[in-house]
Design a protein around this nucleic acid. Structure first.
Length: 243
DNA sequence: AATCACTCCAACCGCTGCGTT
DNA sequence: GAACGCAGCGGTTGGAGTGAT
């Protein structure tokens, strides 16, 4: 995606640059924001010597340059959180992103689109196999991380046994191999998604939130809940404390 | 080796809401 | 209260990369 995409380059009329950011532009933006802070994006564009729109600067910073961003694949926990929160709030990507430290709304939105939305139609066996392999790789990586006993302050914690069972179904309980376990777990997710009426879930959640914020009823996967890092807005097991 | 199918992801656009004048 | 500008959000696009056939 270098440079020539969609006739990008310099936008006619305003003389603003468009398209992919160069390392030099990134450097200018990073230096400026670290000195002066976020906000006032249109003046950032001018003051930092960037021939970009404020909007473009903000997007680049938020989605790519901002410190603390996580790169790499979503973990099974993050995937679970996305599914649950999407059931609650629908396409409120920025809201969902607040519960996934280091992930951006754009990233979550992209992830949802590629992994879930298209698959309202059952994925092909080929897709299923690829997905399964991906989950396996993630599990192996995660196992390695657990072995090294590294716990990030921003990591998403699994609170109790019920969660752990949802996230990591025991082999002897669900399947005879990690591969089968991953497929079984995935099937659960898909069946939830296929049976799920997004509008209903959203209405239920918002109605409950409006009335009693401590007792939002989830229509799917009710036994599952997450405590999301050090965010002040915590999402607890049992009754969902929202805000 | 070539082609196809699919995923990933950066970046755009349009719309909305909010604050300021 | 109206007009304006800006920030933020959600939807969309399309090239690059990768793996399967």
């Amino acid at each position: 995606m270098v440079g020539l995409m969609m006739g990008w380059g310099v936008a006619a009329g305003q003389g603003r640059r468009k398209g992919p950011w160069t390392p030099e532009e990134d450097k200018l933006l990073s230096e400026y924001v670290s000195l002066h802070g976020e906000g006032r994006w249109s003046s950032v564009a001018r003051s930092a010597g960037l021939n970009r729109s404020g909007k473009s600067c903000r997007l680049r910073w938020v989605n790519y340059l901002r410190p603390g961003l996580k790169k790499g694949q979503m973990t099974p926990q993050e995937e679970g959180i996305i599914i649950e929160l999407h059931a609650l709030w629908g396409n409120k990507w920025s809201t969902i992103a607040r519960y996934l430290p280091g992930r951006t709304d754009n990233e979550i939105k992209n992830y949802w689109r590629t992994h879930f939305k298209k698959k309202a139609i059952r994925p092909s066996r080929r897709q299923e196999r690829r997905k399964t392999d991906q989950i396996l790789r993630q599990k192996q990586l995660q196992q390695q991380e657990n072995d090294t006993d590294k716990v990030s302050p921003n990591s998403v914690l699994v609170n109790n046994e019920a969660e752990a069972n949802f996230m990591y179904p025991a082999l002897d309980e669900f399947a005879s191999s990690w591969s089968d376990a991953a497929v079984a777990m995935e099937d659960d997710l898909w069946s939830d998604l296929w049976n799920w009426n997004a509008d209903d879930a959203y209405v239920d959640a918002t109605a409950s939130a409006a009335g009693d914020r401590n007792s939002v009823a989830l229509t799917q996967s009710q036994a599952t809940a997450y405590s999301c890092g050090d965010n002040a807005n915590t999402f607890y097991a049992g009754g969902y404390n929202i805000f």
